[in-house]
Design a protein around this nucleic acid. Structure first.
Length: 491
RNA sequence: CGGGGUGUGGCGCAGUUGGUAGCGUACUACGUUCGGGACGUAGGGGCCGGAAGUUCGAGUCUUCUCACCCCGACCA
């Protein structure tokens, strides 16, 4: 096994895996490709959930829940959709076990075979549209703006903690609209929500854009995505929003009567964001000391550590610490006071750095005498000593400042690793050396994209919304192109 | 599914030409410590991933098998 945090350049994947495990976020479970999300990891997910949920509700959405199982027949109604997911589905075929007559233990009871197999949802479009059919008769029933927090299963060949697990947690929004324009507007609205979330809460700069035809969601007319750059130069798709057109409405026969009394199919969108975001957070911000959790998503934002020789000193320190804790909590922060005496302060410092707690307040007898505390920030590891009376005003400002700093650092990294390239040789050279985002011209054909993928493993991550029009020649074919697209190797 | 690697106390590892398992860390107790991952003393914990075989004797050799990790293939 690789040594913890020592071989980052040699093997980023291993470094990442070690970090996840050392920081106590997750571990492999007994089930192939599945992970146990441990309390430290789940707490981050809960913060992500809370913020996203707030944003969804602010944009008019409500939560609901649909079944885990999807009858096989539902799944095959939309041709492109089944094509896209067929290869990675877990299928339930029986509903009962029994004791083997030959003493071989528990076996599947052959008599309990399901007449129709059930698919464990890889995504919920089909089962949701089956319900929507019954809910929608008139334009007055629209729009339907529903989100679901759920688990899904995709039987990928290769898995990695948080980034691609067989089972993962996510939210999936499924909306139904009376008009094409309204649905497109919703698709755009939600990709903007995701981008805003990434930047304001994850401190993660992202690029918004369209997916190319090859990379589009199975069954969508258009897929918008946000892409982020990880520290090893690979791209990570962090959230997607799909304009589904009338594909699912037609597949599930969902028609409504419009204002003029005419029948029409409903327009749809879907959008999702998963526990992969935790992976993005880890890979984007962490350093060789461990995690760096952006302050707004940190389950514990401030930890107070007393430095003491005996119980008398501890109780003197505790009196002050507890007061600081409750004062900070009144401002809405989550604060932990760690007065355990089974670990030395130095051990605690290192441990909380590994776990990415944004701010550490240390206080010992010397501070008590001077009426001060030592405040250390995780992002820069800088320490300052300030008067106790300043803490309440100091910490919130510091946390804001840290968010900005972490974000700016990520922006700087991305800018330094974004290349505007016009020569194929340079394209190859950059992929082999430092990686990163490559902005290059493309002739717009799936064939060219496919060939580039075959030769370099790089794909078009996104056609940025804000990519300006300019005349150019395709980096691969030399044919004319009107704008640059974003190429990268990805997870 | 192909290529490579690893399976030995909770975690990280060593174990030579086969001789009946050890180190670091963690854990327990006591004492001394406590401003950047403390120290001493004394303890507890492993039939060496599993199965079969060779042998007087297998962590070590052979065959089979399982699991995990990395690289590919695959991946809204």
């Amino acid at each position: 096994m690789a040594k913890f945090l020592t071989n980052r350049e040699e093997n980023y994947a291993q470094w990442y895996n070690d970090l996840v495990i050392k920081a106590d976020l997750a571990e492999n479970s007994a089930v192939r490709g599945c992970m146990v999300i441990k309390p430290n990891g789940y707490a981050i997910w809960e913060k992500i959930q809370a913020e996203l949920d707030r944003m969804f509700k602010a944009t008019g959405h409500v939560n609901a829940y649909f079944p885990l199982f999807i009858p096989k027949s539902f799944f095959s109604k939309e041709a492109a959709h089944v094509e896209g997911f067929a290869k990675e589905c877990a299928v339930v075929t029986h509903y009962r076990l029994k004791n083997d007559e030959n003493g071989k233990g528990i076996i599947v009871d052959p008599a309990a075979k399901l007449e129709e197999e059930l698919i464990i949802r890889p995504t919920s479009e089909t089962i949701i549209w089956h319900s929507y059919k019954n809910w929608i008769k008139s334009y007055r029933d629209l729009p339907i703006l529903i989100n679901q927090w759920a688990n899904v299963v995709r039987w990928e060949m290769r898995t990695r903690l948080f980034l691609r697990t067989t089972e993962f947690l996510w939210q999936e929004g499924h909306t139904a609209h009376a008009t094409r324009e309204e649905a497109i507007e919703e698709t755009e609205r939600m990709i903007n929500v995701y981008a805003e979330f990434a930047e304001n809460f994850m401190a993660l700069p992202v690029i918004k854009g369209y997916k190319s035809e090859n990379e589009r969601f199975a069954g969508a007319l258009d897929t918008y995505a946000i892409e982020a750059l990880m520290q090893d130069g690979k791209a990570l798709q962090a959230g997607t929003s799909h304009f589904l057109g009338q594909n699912f409405a037609k597949a599930f026969d969902v028609q409504f009567t419009d204002k003029t009394g005419k029948l029409d199919y409903v327009w749809a969108t879907s959008w999702g964001l998963s526990t992969r975001m935790i992976g993005a957070l880890i890979m984007a911000h962490s350093d060789n000391r461990g995690l760096v959790i952006p302050p707004k998503l940190a389950p514990v934002q401030v930890v107070i550590i007393p430095i003491f020789k005996n119980t008398e000193q501890l109780s003197n320190l505790s009196a002050v610490a507890v007061k600081i804790k409750s004062e900070l909590e009144k401002t809405g922060l989550t604060v932990k006071y760690d007065d355990r005496d089974n670990n030395k302060p130095g051990w605690k410092f290192a441990d909380y750095e590994l776990k990415g707690i944004p701010v550490r307040i240390a206080m010992g007898p010397r501070d008590l005498e001077n009426g001060t505390v030592e405040v250390a920030r995780r992002d820069t590891l800088e320490k300052v000593t300030i008067p106790v009376s300043d803490i309440i005003s100091y910490i919130p400002v510091l946390l804001n400042e840290m968010h900005k700093n972490i974000y700016n650092k990520a922006v700087k990294f991305r800018n330094e690793n974004t290349w505007y390239i016009d020569k194929w040789s340079e394209f190859l050279e950059i992929l082999d050396n430092q990686g990163g985002f490559i902005m290059a011209h493309w002739d717009g054909t799936p064939e060219t994209e496919e060939k580039i993928k075959e030769e370099t493993k790089a794909t078009i991550r996104i056609i940025p919304f804000d990519s300006p029009e300019e005349e150019g020649k395709c980096i691969y074919s030399g044919k004319p192109s009107k704008r640059r697209v974003l190429f990268a190797r990805s997870y």
